[in-house]
Simulated assay, not measured.
Amino acid sequence: MPVAPPFPRLPSLNALRAFEAAARLGGFALAGEELQVSPGAVAAQIKALEQEIGGALFVRHARGVDLTPLGRRALPGFVAAFDSLGLAVTELRREAVPGKVHIAALPALAELWLAPRLPAIRETLPEVDISITAMETPPNLKRVPFDLCLFYAPDGSSAVAQDDLLPVCTRAVATTLQRPEDLLEAVCLTDSAWARDWQIWADEALPGREFTPKGPVFSLYSLAVQEALSGAGVLMAHRSLVAGHLASGALVAPFPVSVPLKDRISLWSLPGGRGNAVVDTLASELRRLSVSDG
């Protein structure tokens, strides 16, 4: 009589994901944020995994967790495995909907740089279905189904445009400003993510002066731009994001000093996005529009 031994069962995929994320990121809380579950859920999944494999993967202590030697040896293989799984899912989605391109973008770039270019893109590439998700930090394209990233990044092959800093305001507000020192007492509009921009510009325009802007702070750059357009104060602007308002005269630069940003507007795809004809065509068109607008 033939014997049919039970087929070995793999551990839970969720438990393996919890281990990989916690080991890669260095803690249960960070893993929970990435996986969108509680740290307790991560801890429970890892505990169940440790019981199933018969060995400890983490050492728990008051300050957090550390990988055991077993966990350290296992981590590279699981990182590679989940990277491959993420890329495979991305390719599956592309095969299912070949004309769809999903872009992850910094909110300010999505609203003020990308959106104005979409009508021209749609006219040139009417068959491409473009989706945009705004987020503060670039995603790991090996893990999530985005085709392109649009963010500020250090100069490199992915750069599509240089940008620079300069104060902007309405013409009425500009009449109250004669020299850069006048900004020390003016209402200055600040984006919370780019609060350092004022000091970066002041280091060039007001050398040796510590500059602390006086005025409201916004968590959305587009809101700060709208306030500048309404005459509420002076905005430390990224030129690329207010170029249309400068061209129309709705905003003006009261001083001639501008400071190049170290980071450039950059557009890239990671290995899962290269070689896809639709993605490559859209990226090329965005680069072309950036050059022609510049």
Rank of each mutant, 00 (worst) to 15 (best):
I265E: 01
L30Y: 07
L246Y: 08
P6E: 12
A237S: 08
E136K: 10
R274N: 05
P76G: 11
R274W: 07
V97Q: 11
R239G: 04
L184E: 12
P76H: 13
G273W: 02
R264F: 04
E111R: 14
Q199Y: 06
G64F: 08
G249N: 06
V257K: 04
F82E: 08
F255K: 03
E285V: 03
V128Y: 03
A29V: 12
S269E: 04
L220E: 15
E34H: 07
A21N: 07
F218V: 01
L150H: 00
A153D: 07
L189S: 09
I265H: 02
G249K: 04
P254D: 04
V173W: 00
A62D: 13
L246V: 06
V89L: 10
L241Y: 05
L92Q: 12
L141W: 03
M236R: 14
V279L: 00
L35Y: 00
D83V: 05
S84L: 11
G294A: 15
A237P: 09
L35G: 11
M135N: 03
D263L: 06
V279Q: 02
S12Y: 02
L141E: 12
R24L: 13
E227Y: 09
R117W: 06
R239K: 14
V101A: 02
W194S: 10
A193F: 11
V42H: 10
F78K: 05
L241H: 05
R73S: 13
L206K: 06
E185L: 13
A110T: 02
V278F: 05
E181D: 12
G208Q: 11
A237V: 08
M135G: 11
L150T: 01
L289G: 02
G275F: 04
L229D: 00
V217Q: 12
T175R: 13
A105F: 02
E52C: 00
H238L: 11
D83Q: 13
G77K: 07
A120Q: 12
V252P: 01
V217M: 09
R196P: 02
L251K: 08
G156W: 10
V97G: 00
P256R: 11
S222F: 01
L246T: 05
S266E: 03
L16N: 04
G231F: 05
G156T: 08
I130H: 00
E20H: 06
F151Q: 02
V225W: 04
V42A: 10
G77Y: 10
A110R: 01
R73E: 14
S12I: 00
P260K: 06
F7N: 01
F7S: 07
L13M: 08
P8M: 09
T190S: 15
L67W: 11
P154V: 01
I103R: 07
F211N: 10
P126N: 03
P8G: 10
D164T: 04
W198Y: 10
A277S: 06
Q51N: 09
G71W: 06
R196A: 15
P8S: 11
V97N: 10
N14Q: 15
D155P: 04
